[in-house]
Lab assay of single mutants.
Amino acid sequence: MDVFMKGLSKAKEGVVAAAEKTKQGVAEAAGKTKEGVLYVGSKTKEGVVHGVATVAEKTKEQVTNVGGAVVTGVTAVAQKTVEGAGSIAAATGFVKKDQLGKNEEGAPQEGILEDMPVDPDNEAYEMPSEEGYQDYEPEA
């Protein structure tokens, strides 16, 4: 019985440690998101679009440190934060509304985080759909 109880105690310690790591990862992701939003706020009209992409990228980098179902929630929060940063930029006159959601080359930025393969159960990952990809044929 002692062996059984000791095993359960060790398992509990492992769960607590994993929860603490997840909590730490979420806190880091939130900190990076805040950094990115402050970065966007300090940019001029020309830099705002690039700044919004930076927020998304920093958040995406930190999301990889967070495991399990938390990833889905962090990704949703990050996307809403990026959308909010863009709205703030438009409201303050840093950028025109028609410039939001495009990178410096004018290509749409939507789907940055949505296409990231995420499995809350950590069982399997699927690649994003290939609808947006084109076949590449090298020139002879």
Rank of each mutant, 00 (worst) to 15 (best):
A107P: 14
G101V: 09
V82M: 08
G106K: 07
E130H: 06
P117L: 10
E123K: 14
P138R: 05
V71C: 08
M5G: 01
K10Q: 10
H50Q: 15
P108L: 09
S9Y: 04
S87W: 10
A140N: 12
V95G: 15
K80E: 06
G7H: 03
D115I: 05
G132A: 15
K43Y: 14
T44M: 08
A19I: 02
K6H: 06
D119S: 10
L113C: 03
P138N: 07
K23R: 12
T92D: 07
V70T: 03
V15W: 14
G68D: 03
T44H: 03
Q134R: 09
A140C: 07
E46M: 12
K21E: 00
V55P: 01
A89K: 03
D135R: 03
D135M: 06
G47E: 03
A124P: 09
V48E: 00
V49K: 11
E130T: 09
K80V: 12
K60T: 03
D98E: 12
K97Q: 02
Q79D: 12
V118N: 13
A89N: 07
E57V: 13
G132W: 08
V74T: 04
P138K: 07
V49N: 05
N103E: 12
L100T: 04
V70D: 04
G67S: 06
S129D: 13
S87T: 01
G41E: 02
K80C: 06
S9I: 14
Y39G: 02
T33K: 01
E35K: 06
T75I: 02
V48P: 00
V66I: 08
T64K: 08
E110C: 03
G106N: 10
V55I: 01
A18E: 00
N122F: 07
Y136M: 05
A107T: 12
K96M: 10
E28T: 10
V77P: 04
L8N: 00
A19Q: 01
N65L: 05
V40C: 08
D2F: 12
K23E: 00
A140E: 02
G101D: 12
A107S: 07
G106A: 06
V82D: 06
K12T: 15
S9E: 09
T75F: 15
D119M: 14
S42H: 02
E35T: 11
A17R: 08
A140M: 09
S9L: 07
D119H: 06
G67V: 14
P138A: 11
D135K: 06
Y136W: 12
V71Y: 15
E126Q: 04
A17N: 07
A89Y: 06
K6Y: 05
K32A: 15
Q24S: 10
N65C: 07
A19G: 04
I88L: 15
G106S: 07
V16M: 15
E13T: 08
E35N: 08
L113V: 15
S87P: 14
A29F: 11
E139K: 10
T92S: 15
N103K: 04
K97R: 07
A53V: 15
K32P: 00
V55E: 01
K102C: 06
V52H: 01
V49I: 12
V49T: 15
V74F: 05
Q62E: 04
K45L: 15
T59W: 11
K34T: 05
E130I: 02
E13G: 11
S129R: 03
T44Y: 05
G93F: 02
A19F: 08
P117K: 14
T64G: 06
Y136L: 07
V3M: 13
